[in-house]
Structure formats: C-alpha cells, structure tokens
Simulated scan of single mutants.
Amino acid sequence: MRSPVGEGRERLLQALFDEFGEGGPGPNLSMRQVAERLGVHHTLLTYHFGSRPGLLGAVLSEARRRDNRVIAATGDAPGFATLCEAIWNFYANDAHEDRTRAFFRLVGLAVYEPGAFREFVADLDDLTRLLEAAALREGSTATEARQRSVIAVAALRGLLLQRLLTPAAEVDAAAGHFIASLAAPPA
C-alpha cells in the first residue's frame, strides 16, 4: 500500500535533514547526487519537489518552521524586543551559520527566479508574522505592528548578512544597539 503524497514528502524532508543537516544539500550537488545519497530514485525527488530550487526551498522552509517554533517558545507571549533578541541570538549562533548561508544563497537565487522558489518566497513572512503578533500584544495598531515587524526583520536579516560577509565588524554590538532601540519608548 502506498502512503499519501504528503507523508512521502515529509519522509523525504526528514531524510534530507538527516543526510545534509538543516542547511540542505550543498550548491554543487545535482538532484541525482542528492537522490543517490538518500538511496532513492531522482524522479521521486522531482515528483515531490519539482526541481532542485524546489527541493532547496522546501528544506529551508521546513527548517525555518522548526526554527520559528523554537524562537516562539522563548517564553509566554514574549514582547517585541525580546522576540527580536531571540531571533538574533538564534541565527547569530555559529551553530546555525550553514543554514543562514543557505538562506541567503536561496534568497539570491529567488531574486532572479521567484517562480522557481515559490514556496520559499511565500514563507519569507513567517518571522514578520511572529513579530507582528508581539507588537499587537504591546498595543500597536495593525498597521504599526506590520510596519515595525517588516523593519525589524529587514534589519535583522541585513545584520546577519553583514555578519556573514564581514565577521570582524562589530555587527553583534550593532544588533544589540538595534534591539535595545526597539525596547526604548518612542521619541
């Protein structure tokens, strides 16, 4: 008896995590090579993920969903600044550097081929939604909450990219300053 399509896809995602970690397969591996490492036929990967970009996007989208559960578990309904700090601390941790690099690699590819990374692009707002809920809990209007969240996610991602490109810069201190500014009352 065959398992439902979603279950097969979930099992393949888990196998991909087990084999390649949460950053997914490296950029130089073909679908055939990935399939070989997993011990499956490459057409199975194509069936479930469509293409190499689809496979990479699915792996990173699932990794981000898992990350968000960890980040959101920071405490009971964390505040906006606390949640920003948890996001920074999670992704600035050297243990997550490969996944952060993979994220930016896919973002760069998605800029040129958004259709090939449809699932990945659709999931990019996940952190924004987490932060938006925190801002709403703190009394922001819906518009303010959305804008604050978009700005915070853009700033944190920019700082993470800066940290990858120029690790000698005082990026961690700048992130701390940015996060502290979020907790300060508006001028």
Rank of each mutant, 00 (worst) to 15 (best):
V150F: 09
Q147H: 15
A184C: 03
I151H: 15
Q147G: 08
S181D: 13
L165R: 12
L160R: 08
A174K: 09
A183I: 08
A175C: 07
A173D: 07
Q147T: 15
F178T: 06
Q147R: 15
L159E: 04
L164H: 07
V153L: 01
A173S: 07
Q162V: 02
V171S: 01
Q162F: 07
L182A: 06
H177R: 11
A168C: 03
V171C: 04
H177Q: 09
F178R: 05
E170I: 00
L164R: 05
L161V: 06
E170V: 00
L165Q: 11
T166V: 03
L165G: 07
V150I: 13
H177T: 12
R148G: 08
Q147E: 15
S181L: 12
L159A: 08
H177K: 08
L161K: 10
A183L: 06
L164W: 08
R148A: 14
V150M: 10
T166D: 03
D172H: 03
A155S: 15
S181T: 13
I151K: 11
I151Q: 14
P167F: 12
A154H: 12
A155L: 13
A168I: 02
A169D: 07
A169H: 06
R157Q: 11
L182V: 10
E170F: 00
T166H: 05
T166N: 03
G176N: 02
V153Q: 00
R163T: 03
H177D: 05
Q147A: 14
L160K: 03
A152P: 11
Q147M: 15
Q147Y: 14
A154M: 12
L165M: 11
L165I: 03
R163D: 03
G158S: 13
I179F: 12
A180K: 06
A154D: 15
Q147K: 13
